[in-house]
Computed example of a mutant assay.
Amino acid sequence: MTTTVSFNHLLRLSDDIGLFEHALGSVPRREYGYCVDDVARGLVVLSREPSPPLELVRLLERYLTFVLAAQAPDGTIVNRRGTDGRWLDNPEVGDCWGRALWGLGTAAALAPTARLRALAREAFHASAARRSPWPRAMTFAALGAGEMLLAHPDDTAARALLTDAVAAIGPIGDDPAWPWPEPTLRYANAAVPEALILAGICLPDPAALANGLRLLAWLLHVETRGGTLSPTPVAGRSPRGDRRPGFDQQPIEAAAIADACARAHAATGRNRWLTGLGRAHGWFFGENDNGTPLIDVATGGCHDGLEPEGCNANQGAESTLALLSTAQHARRLLAPWTP
């Protein structure tokens, strides 16, 4: 199993405006245009890449320009854009707002040039003044606020946003069988414990850290079957849901597990979290419920979902970024580690 990170397919999906959301096989479906959700994810991944070549620095700048163009004067975010450059919906504070803050906060902390970091930080502050009524949007925003605070511990806007995000996530439950702060598991679930872990580190908030680690341990237990990651399917999972493998499984779920386990390892130094990261990484290579690799080594892309008897043949932006993000963690943390 390789930890090599190939950006070939991400480059194939990108043009002078942004990142195409969908692909037919490995061919970009230009008719569906672009969305901030994916471009912001791309901004996170490219910002994390150590010593990126000039080609990736230019791509990062293109993605940052896209997110800046999506930002309304009041800090709300427009999500969808056509290939003619027109924006196709109205500004909002939903998931795209949260993901934009995630991307901007990460770029403000980690982008490879001072100019790009400064642009991202200014834009982060413009949107960080807003709040969303939706806890999952606040969760994504918290990830950007946490990255900002790791680089700039005195950033008051990021601190206020992260504090409010912890309140928006809400208390975890007393029932050990279902401590999750929502009635169902939905999508990118491990972002919730990661946000709490970041709050524990950055605010600091020992209770949030303990709750985040507890939720992540529980989620790994629920989403592991026979030593193999078995993520919550696209339809979600409830307390009374079927515990057999569910389909379709989405790469974003494995990537969120990888992100949260890497964060938990940074907070605690405990190798148990590297085991979780290893299972998330292995999921892409066929260590999953039907033994099908999601990675396409020929293209550098990732298939869009694990199905009961195989995988979705398409290789869209969200899936490919999920693979890249997980491979980045694996290269940094798993390559020098032997369980």
Results as ranks from 00 to 15, higher is better:
Ala267Gln: 07
Pro231Glu: 03
Glu253Leu: 07
Glu223Met: 13
Leu213Glu: 10
His221Thr: 14
Arg240Ser: 15
Pro245Ile: 03
Ala262Lys: 09
Pro204Lys: 07
Gln250Asn: 06
Gly241Gln: 08
Gly241Val: 11
Thr232Phe: 02
Val234Tyr: 06
Ala266Met: 06
Ala262Gly: 11
Glu223Pro: 03
Pro233Asp: 12
Arg243Cys: 10
Gly227Met: 11
Phe247Tyr: 15
Leu229Thr: 01
Arg243Gln: 15
Asp205Arg: 09
Gly269Glu: 02
Leu219Phe: 15
Leu215Gly: 06
Asn211Leu: 00
Ala266Asn: 01
Gly246Trp: 05
Arg214Tyr: 01
Leu229Phe: 14
Ala208Arg: 05
Arg270Tyr: 02
Asp205Glu: 11
Ile257Pro: 00
Thr268Leu: 02
Ile257Thr: 13
His221Ile: 00
Ala262Cys: 13
Trp218Met: 05
Ala256Val: 04
Val222Thr: 15
Ala254Arg: 03
Pro206Tyr: 01
Thr228Pro: 00
Ala264Val: 08
Glu223Gln: 14
Arg270Ile: 00
Trp218Ser: 08
Ala264Asp: 08
Trp218Glu: 06
Cys202Gln: 09
Ala258Pro: 11
Ala217Gln: 15
Cys261His: 11
Pro204Leu: 04
Thr224Lys: 10
Gly212Glu: 04
Thr224Glu: 12
Asp248Tyr: 05
Pro251His: 07
Gly241Asn: 11
Ala208Cys: 10
Val222Cys: 11
Trp218Tyr: 08
Leu220Val: 13
Leu215Glu: 03
Pro231Gly: 05
Gln250Gly: 01
His265Arg: 10
Pro206Glu: 10
Ile252Lys: 03
Arg237Phe: 15
Asp259Glu: 12
Cys202Lys: 04
Arg240Pro: 00
Gly226Thr: 06
Gln250Phe: 02
Asp248Thr: 13
Arg225Ile: 09
Leu215Ser: 06
Ile257Gly: 00
Phe247Met: 06
Leu215Val: 06
Leu213Val: 09
Asp205His: 12
Ala258Gln: 09
Val234Gln: 14
Gly269Phe: 07
Thr228Phe: 08
His221Pro: 00
Ala255Gly: 11
Gln249Ala: 13
Arg263Tyr: 01
Ala260Gly: 11
Pro206Ile: 00
Thr232His: 01
Arg237Leu: 15
Ala255Met: 12
Pro231Cys: 08
Asn211Lys: 02
Asn211Thr: 01
Gln250Leu: 14
Ala208Asn: 05
Ala208Pro: 11
Arg263Asn: 01
Ala258Asp: 10
Leu219Gln: 15
Pro245Gln: 02
Thr224Ser: 15
Ala217Asn: 15
Ala266Leu: 11
Glu223His: 03
Ala260Asp: 14
Ala266Tyr: 01
Ser230Glu: 10
Ala254Asn: 05
Gly246Val: 08
Leu203Ala: 03
